[in-house]
Amino acid sequence: MKLRKLSYAFVLAATLSACAFAGTAGTADHQLVKYGNVQIDVMRQGQGPVIVMLPSLGRSVRDYDQVAERLVADGFRVLRPEPRGIGLSKGPMENLSVHDFAKDVAAVIEHENKGPVVVVGHAWGNFAARQLAADRPDLVRGVVVAAASAGKVPPGSNEKPIGPEMRKAIDGPSDMKLPEAQRIEYLRKAFFAPGHDPRVWLTGWHSETHEAESHARNTTPVDDYFAAGTAPILDLQAENDAVAPRRFSQVLKNMLGDRVTVVVIPNAGHALAPEQPQAMADAIAAFAHRVFANK
């Protein structure tokens, strides 16, 4: 189902106390954006063209504090909406599709009312970013898919985009019933490049959101979001990504053509942001400057 343009007024339900960040980014404030029976907790900081960042499966936008600081320093306004079930974001959690998560982001962008944005989707977030661009092209200037599974494999391949063993490693770290050593091993296998400490992601998992997003991924047809409408795409790849491996690295480019620009970040795994925040921010900023210049 396509998202309908939201005709009702979005309500600014609350403005929470500002929280300080180190470095050049200054401060970020929080807003609650409400529509219907949904409210989305949005971190906002900086001034300039708007970049919206969507997080990984079952994780918070706080994973991108360092990346956001750098983008703000480069002249952008960064919005980070928490998915339902994280922070003060809430709404129905059962039987959601990727369209529903994209609709939440659309509400945030419409409330901001600053024109089409660049939307960044990391890992699972790339599905919602592409779905938003497909359902609401009027809100999206460009799409960054970061450490992202394309959702398809090259023609002729019998593999799945993500096999069962890797799926176990992706889901394992959020299972707090597992021994810490097992969770660390799953983190090392799925998320982090060799030599990087996976313990930084031992915390920060949100099981209800993880389950809702997993259901949405499993039940929404890939073709609903695959092409991201007609928006320009930055395919920001991690050199050591075990979840979106190098053998699948040209799927988006080969299928969508010149709309897709591929940039590979060295010495990074699927987690990407905690491993190479400066390189991630630099690539996003370069792409955003380009697409905002081509109005």
Rank of each mutant, 00 (worst) to 15 (best):
D197F: 02
R199T: 14
W201P: 00
W201T: 00
G204W: 03
W205Q: 02
H206C: 01
S207H: 12
T209N: 14
T209V: 14
T209H: 07
E211N: 11
E211A: 13
A212H: 07
A212G: 08
A212L: 08
E213D: 02
H215S: 11
A216R: 08
R217V: 02
R217M: 06
R217Y: 05
T219A: 03
T219I: 09
T220N: 07
D223W: 15
D223M: 15
D223H: 15
Y225H: 09
A227G: 09
A227K: 14
A228M: 04
G229V: 05
A231G: 06
A231R: 03
P232K: 09
I233H: 11
I233P: 04
L236A: 03
L236H: 02
L236W: 02
Q237M: 07
Q237V: 04
E239T: 06
E239N: 08
V243A: 01
V243Q: 03
A244G: 07
A244N: 09
A244V: 08
P245E: 07
R246E: 00
R246H: 03
R247K: 12
R247M: 01
F248H: 15
S249E: 14
Q250S: 05
Q250A: 04
V251T: 12
V251F: 10
V251S: 09
V251L: 12
L252R: 09
L252S: 06
L252C: 08
L252G: 05
K253S: 05
N254S: 14
N254F: 06
N254K: 14
L256W: 02
G257P: 15
D258W: 08
D258E: 15
V260M: 04
T261G: 02
V262G: 00
V263K: 15
V263E: 13
V264Q: 03
N267D: 15
A268P: 05
G269V: 02
G269I: 02
A271R: 08
A271G: 07
A271W: 09
P274R: 14
E275S: 10
Q276W: 04
A281D: 02
D282P: 00
D282N: 15
D282E: 15
A283V: 08
A283M: 10
V291E: 05
V291S: 03
